[in-house]
Design a protein around this nucleic acid. Structure first.
Length: 382
DNA sequence: AAACAACCTTCCCA
DNA sequence: ATGGGAAGGTTGT
């Protein structure tokens, strides 16, 4: 009897969350695809509610945010927190970069620049505006690693070393730890016992380096945001590669998904394969010399860069333009397919799901949607 | 500058 | 069932 009541109470509590909507064109944003394409690792999927929840840095403070895909071309968002409605709304808009017109850019710019894209659909895949410090640490975890374990590691960081924020639908949410909190609460050996492997040293080293850079002043996200005000992309990347465990790929991921540098194309093994297989990329001596000259005053970049991969990045930047990183996100998602997510029990299961196709309205016929789906399945298998 | 082994752990697949 | 290989790389030689 009591049990039943408490369950009832819990459900009522859930219902008390007020969801608000943000409307957009059909296909502008497909949450399932965006949150599973390997740029965000701490969203929890609630299968029963068809909702996602996470703790996110909203204006300098981590808060629980809940989102779900609405029925008619919209996202619904809510929170347990006491945030003013317009603050949360503008946060969600900027987190999903809704000011960027994905479909327009795709049709009127990207597909014209690159005829290979004409046969593809953006599938609502967007680049997020994530917290820079969390993005930096998350992608340090990503090196030579699979998404399943990266997800576990990011959750382990917040639940072990972050601040408790509250429970949503049975899932406890914690903030992502600051560099100071990591230094205070974590250690390399403990991280190793938590399964971080050799990345344990990188994470503690990066937290340490961040504290040194801050010199007691601004640190973490505010410090990294300041880089954007005074430095160009190459300088920002040079700075990021000053952290241990951060090479060109990780630095570029943080630039794109944490610093909103939309033209940056992180070149991993898959993008390199696509460049050679689909775009007939061959490195040219002249380009490599040019790059060496460009980086002559950047010692860290010179030490860590792979010139061949960097010239792939530049090829795509020149082909795809100011939003090259967004196109990379779309191409990558189609190459890899959707992989996994966290369920409400906290268990993370590998499940090779097809990318959901929700572009029927836009494209028109179901035949086209089927064709896209078939192509994705093909690319996942290969 | 470029190539290559080593690196932690987990998951997948033969 | 059991073992090699890969996973959105980085580091040191």
């Amino acid at each position: 009897m009591y049990k039943y009541q408490s369950v009832k109470k819990l459900q009522n509590h859930l219902l008390m969350i007020k969801f608000n909507k943000i409307l957009f064109q059909p296909g502008e944003l497909v949450i399932d695809n965006v949150l599973h394409c390997g740029q965000a690792f701490r969203w929890v999927f609630h299968e029963d509610l068809r909702q996602y929840s996470a703790s996110l840095n909203v204006g300098g403070k981590y808060r629980i945010v809940v989102v779900k895909q609405g029925k008619d071309n919209c996202i619904e968002y809510g929170t347990l927190d006491t945030i003013e409605e317009d603050v949360l709304r503008s946060f969600v808009e900027s987190y999903f970069r809704l000011e960027v017109p994905l479909l327009d850019l795709f049709a009127k710019d990207w597909a014209l620049r690159d005829s290979r894209l004409k046969s593809k659909a953006p599938l609502g895949v967007r680049i997020l505006a994530q917290d820079p410090w969390e993005t930096l640490v998350s992608f340090i975890c990503s090196s030579n690693n699979n998404i399943s374990r990266i997800t576990k590691m990011c959750h382990a960081l917040s639940s072990n070393y972050g601040d408790k924020l509250g429970v949503y639908n049975g899932v406890e949410h914690c903030s992502f730890p600051s560099s100071a909190q990591l230094l205070e609460r974590a250690s390399e050996s403990e991280l190793r016992t938590l399964g971080f492997g050799y990345r344990a040293k990188y994470i503690m080293g990066t937290a340490q380096k961040m504290q040194e850079l801050a010199k007691g002043m601004l640190s973490d996200t505010p410090l990294l945001e300041n880089w954007k005000k005074t430095l160009n992309y190459e300088q920002i990347r040079e700075n990021f590669m000053g952290f241990p465990g951060v090479g060109p790929k990780v630095a570029d991921c943080v630039c794109l998904s944490g610093m909103r540098l939309d033209h940056v194309v992180p070149v991993d093994v898959h993008i390199a394969r696509i460049a050679q297989r689909d775009y007939r990329f061959v490195s040219r001596k002249r380009d490599l010399f040019q790059l060496q000259d460009m980086y002559k005053d950047m010692p860290i970049t010179r030490r860590k860069i792979n010139y061949e991969l960097d010239s792939i990045r530049i090829m795509f930047k020149e082909l795809w333009g100011d939003y090259a990183g967004w196109i990379q996100g779309i191409v990558f998602a189609q190459e890899i397919g959707k992989t996994l997510g966290a369920t409400q029990e906290g268990t993370i299961s590998k499940r090779k799901l097809e990318i959901e196709v929700k572009v029927e309205e836009k494209v028109g016929t179901e035949v086209v949607a089927m064709e896209i789906k078939r192509r994705i399945t093909e690319s996942v298998q290969s």
